[in-house]
């Protein structure tokens, strides 16, 4: 630890409070902030997976089959699961942010936040339903 700086007359000696290591555990909003920061690791992981997938695709059907087998590794399933949860988390953050980013006005009055955010969720459900439909049809 550094020795305390001596005070010199007419020179301010400010104290900078050290941020505690676990400051983010104090509040749910801070914890969410940290989770979003942390999510970058998993997003990066997913990007690598995607690149490997492309690489495998270029290597022909056998290589792609090998890649798919490799994906079944429980560790990778867990990691992908976590990535998925983080992406969900980001999606919800963005949806809830819409009413803040767009102050929608109708006849001079600002629409309630819920009404601005709701279409996102509706669209999300619709797209998800479409994806499920496409997947189940092929399967």
């Amino acid at each position: 630890m550094k020795p305390p700086v001596a005070y010199r007359q007419y020179h301010p000696k400010w104290h900078r409070t050290r941020v505690s290591t676990f400051w983010w555990s104090r509040k749910w909003s801070y914890l969410k902030f940290m989770l979003r920061e942390l999510s970058s690791v998993f997003v990066a992981f997913y990007v690598v997976i995607l690149l490997l997938q492309l690489h495998a695709l270029r290597g022909g059907p056998d290589a792609y089959q090998g890649f798919q087998d490799w994906l079944r590794n429980p560790l990778l399933v867990i990691l992908n699961g976590i990535s998925f949860l983080f992406v969900l988390f980001h999606a919800v953050t963005w949806f809830n942010l819409t009413p803040k980013a767009m102050a929608v006005r109708l006849r001079g009055k600002r629409l309630p936040d819920v009404l601005v955010a709701a279409p996102n969720y509706v669209a999300w459900l619709a797209v998800s339903a479409l994806v499920v439909f496409l997947l189940t049809r092929q399967g």
Binding site: S29, Y30, F33, R36, T93, K100, A101, M102
Partner: peptide
């Protein structure tokens, strides 16, 4: 800003800075 939103929560004058920042991003 990563939309923590605490600024808006604590503001004693209901200014909603978080909203301003998101509008700005858009």
């Amino acid at each position: 800003c990563t939309f923590v939103g605490e600024c808006t929560e604590v503001c004693p004058k209901n200014v909603d800075p978080a909203g301003a920042i998101q509008q700005y991003k858009l």
